[in-house]
Structure formats: C-alpha cells, structure tokens
Design a protein around this nucleic acid. Sequence first.
DNA 1: TAGATTGTTAATCGATTAACAATC
DNA 2: TAGATTGTTAATCGATTAACAATC
Lengths: 207, 207
Amino acid sequence: MNSNKIPEPALRRLPWYLSYVKLLKSQGEKYVSSTKIAKKIDVSASQIAKDLSFVEISGKTRVGYDIDELINVLDTFLGFKVIHKAVLFGVGSLGAALLSDSGLEQYGLKIIAGFDVNKSVVDTKIHDIPVYHSDEFIQMNKEIDAEIGILTVPSGVAQEVSDYMISGGIKGVWNFTPFRIRVPSGIVLQNTSLYAHLAVMFNRLDS
Amino acid sequence: MNSNKIPEPALRRLPWYLSYVKLLKSQGEKYVSSTKIAKKIDVSASQIAKDLSFVEISGKTRVGYDIDELINVLDTFLGFKVIHKAVLFGVGSLGAALLSDSGLEQYGLKIIAGFDVNKSVVDTKIHDIPVYHSDEFIQMNKEIDAEIGILTVPSGVAQEVSDYMISGGIKGVWNFTPFRIRVPSGIVLQNTSLYAHLAVMFNRLDS
DNA sequence: TAGATTGTTAATCGATTAACAATC
DNA sequence: TAGATTGTTAATCGATTAACAATC
C-alpha cells in the first residue's frame, strides 16, 4: 500500500491515462503497457510507471496492466464513481453555462442548486436545476448537504461569497473566477480560471 | 528587456495579480507593493517579484508599482488586449455552454462559429453564434481566418478533429476533452480538462 | 538617516528523467 | 533462454524560496 500523497502534477495526468485506456477498451483491447500509453500520449514511460505507483494496481511483467482493472482503479482513485453534491454561486454567463453542462454528472459531480442575488434569475430553473436567492443558502444547505461549492461570481465578491459558502458547510471550493481567493486550512480549493489558460495560450502563440 | 521565456507556473499566476490589482484600482488605489499583493493573495513576495521580472515593468522603491501601468502591462502581456479569433468544434453540452459564455470576449477571445456533425445543431445559432457542419470548416476558415480552435468533442474523436482543425489553419488548440491529444511542433496546445480539476478536488477532499 | 521596497543571486526543494534490478 | 516489461532507486533539472545588495 503506497499511501504517500500523490503530487498534484501526477494526479492531473491520471485522467489522461484513464481516457486513453477507456478508448482502448472500446476497441476490444485487454491489456496495455506503460510503453504503449507513452507512445500515444506524449508522456515518458517512466513517468507513467511512477504515476501509477501511487494507485493500487500492479502490472504483469511482459504483459502490462489489465485494462478493466486499470479503469476501475483509476475511476475510483479519481473519485468519479461516487456522486459528490455541489451548489453553484453566480448564475451569470459562465455559471449558467456550467449548469447546462450535463457532462459533469458522469464524472461524479451533481449540481443540486444554483444561487444568485439577481432577481431576473432567482426562482427560475436552468436545465432543470433550480436557482434560489443566495440568502437562502445557509438554511437550505442543512437539507441539501452539498460538499462542493462552484464559484462563478464576479471577481470583486469572490472572497466574500467563498467565505459565505464555507460558513454554510461547503468543504471544497471550485473557483472559476480569476481572483485568487483564500480558504481556511482543511478546506479544499481548486482554481480553474479559463482566463489564465487563455493567457497561457495567447502568450505561447505570440512567441 | 527580459525576453527569457516565462515559466508556465509563473504565467499562470499573473492573472491573479491582475485581478487583485484591478480590484484595488476600483477602490481608488494608485500604487501597490509586492508585499501588499502577497498578503492578500497567498503567494510569497519574492515569488511575485520574480514573476513580475518577466514583464516589462519597474517598480518604485519604497512605493511599489503604479497600478494603472501594472494593469496595462499585464493585460498586454497576457494577450487580453488583442482580439483572437476562434472556432469551436463539438456543440454538445460543454461546447454549447462555452458558446454561451460571453465573458470570454472581454479577455480577447472571440468565437466566430461553431462546428458539429450532428444535424440537430447544424445551421442553428447559439447565443448569436452560427453553427455549421464540420465539413464546411476548411473552406470557411479561408474567410474566417481563426487562429484558435476550441475542442469540445467526445474523447474518441479528439485527435482526429484536432488534426482536421490544424489542417484548416488553426495555430492553437484549446482542448477541453480529457483526452491527451498530440499536435505538431509549432502548434500551441492548451489542455483544460474540467474533469482533471474535479479529480484533484475529489482526491483532496477524500484524504 | 532609517526604513521600506525592488530585484537579483544563491540555496533549497521537489518533480522529472534515466538507469537498472527484478520478474515472467 | 532471450527479451519485454514493471517498478524502484539515483541523477538531473527546474521552480521556489531565502538572502541580500541597491535604491530612494
């Protein structure tokens, strides 16, 4: 049992392996070696071997990994097999877009409700997900019991709304704003700023 | 002139500084020091100083950086001041969601058209952006001349569609699929898999 | 001047890569 | 057996952190 904490870069590569291995499975393959993954996916074979050493699997010498087992282990390790309940704050352009993305549920994220302060969206439904006034959250989350809060509010109120979500029992904040919020220790923060990724791409394009 | 290539981790932090400094400007501040940013944003002051050494700005000893100048320099460096034309392949759940996110245009990304092979979306409009059949792309891009291709197709066809976009003149691929595609050298690839970020969050929550 | 700040250089840390022993 | 593969250990590389000189 290797229960050393996996480094974040390694953790982020695991979904690539999973995605490729699922493709192989759909093509009827039974086994895959790290060298085979490496060739297709542009990650070195030793890196793959090292990354896989963090998960609970052992390969067969001269054969590689059992595909079904690898998929199962990765899906479980990455948390895609369990439904995690979430709420979303800020039903603007990006927020509404995320509520409409039904793909997230296949990966274990179920958005139960949206919250906003804008009267034009409060008490509507988007893609069958109800939107409530933010003030109702603390009371409602006693029932909903969501552990993840998705943050798609304007940057200026990101910190404040994050604090509010946490006071209502949120354990993990998925921050889509470009603002770098701070959270108490013990609370998980994941920053996913599309704009930061855009910036990386623009910068590389212009050089 | 410091034209050393900026490391990607540093590049990704710049939008955080930009976001905070814009907030300060809206509060009427004129100058900001790296120590002040550090306190608010949970990045060490020396890291900030080092990151800012890659952009074309110099601070004033004992005063810090001029906020207007810093915003201008970062906006320019990050490519947010120039409109970059993009097309989007795969108008499914996530793709349609991105077409609906008008926020991207404020950061320099203008999506001109969507492409798909599914008859139920071809020749419709989403958020005023027209959707065409994928087969029309090569011909159409002679006119559109988009440099960025947003990839929101199913994993299984991600590589194929990416190759196709590039053959039509795309210079930068923004890959939202969990599949790790490969691109020829000279083509910029930016991976933004929401599922990978979910995985990181789930993993940290469960430990 | 004293003190706060920038910005560079050196030391540290951690991830990646390479080498290789073990296995079938 | 020979050869392909896993999986660990050591070497390398690059980013972060710390120290500090320069500046106003």
